[in-house]
Design a protein around this nucleic acid. Structure first.
Lengths: 139, 139
DNA sequence: CAGCATCCATGACGATACTG
DNA sequence: CAGTATCGTCATGGATGCTG
């Protein structure tokens, strides 16, 4: 039993306290925060979530409200968010077809969790911009 | 006056309420949230901020605690965060040189604003993973 | 120890054209 | 209307080698 049944390091089996130094591997790779940022840290996800947080919306309306997004990226990002369970797609078999996207409870939860970050960005990004100017002005 | 003095659309001049539809341009480009995510949505920034939120730390310790990061990315990300005013660099002229990084009040603020997101990720990413499996299993 | 310089692979993203 | 398919570009980030 001293060696354990598999090859996991001892601090992963709880026989030693995670040593703070060198638990990096787990921290960096499994870190749920990174996984989340991998998905919503892209160019459009949060923007789309915020819009759908206001109200369900059709593809074309999203396209018009998010100036600068391409059909490809909108479509791709929507599919990704749907896959993640953050929004749902509802297609009506009209001619032409009508597709509406809505945020899910899980998506709403995430949006709520992002609220503080969004607020911070809106009030404090000027301070960041100022810090940059000072940094860039240094000889 | 009916046509206005420049070629800006009327809702930008306040002669009509921003119509919800079509205010996309401003929303998408100036959005502080996007600016923030452009800076901390990368692979390592939040991780570094979290570590420095615990305690000031030297380059080599950061390198060891974040398994998988290259010197290049660590150095590059640290410089970017320093430029943004989120952390400070202190170099001591020992031989060899000793460099310590600390989080700033602004960085601490941001970290606090990210707390809800981090917590959400830690508790709810399993739900996201499950949603993905269901999505991928659909024929 | 704490970097910088360089090269290279990958993938994110945009533009364009086409479709049920 | 709501997409898919294809192509090209550019930025991100890893690997390697060198330095004060």
């Amino acid at each position: 039993m001293q060696d354990g049944t598999f090859d996991a390091p001892s601090y992963l089996k709880g026989t030693r306290p995670a040593p703070d130094v060198l638990r990096g591997d787990v921290f960096a790779r499994d870190c749920p925060t990174r996984q989340l940022l991998d998905r919503v840290g892209d160019k459009w996800s949060v923007l789309i979530l915020r819009l759908l947080g206001e109200a369900p919306m059709r593809f074309s309306l999203l396209k018009r409200r998010i100036a600068g997004i391409s059909q490809k990226m909108l479509s791709q990002t929507l599919r990704s968010l749907e896959r993640d369970g953050l929004l749902t797609r509802h297609a009506e078999a009209t001619v032409p077809i009508t597709v509406t996207y809505s945020i899910t409870p899980l998506g709403h939860e995430l949006l709520a969790a992002l609220r503080a970050m969004i607020d911070w960005a809106e009030t404090r990004m000027p301070a960041v911009a100022q810090a940059q100017q000072i940094y860039d002005a240094r000889t």
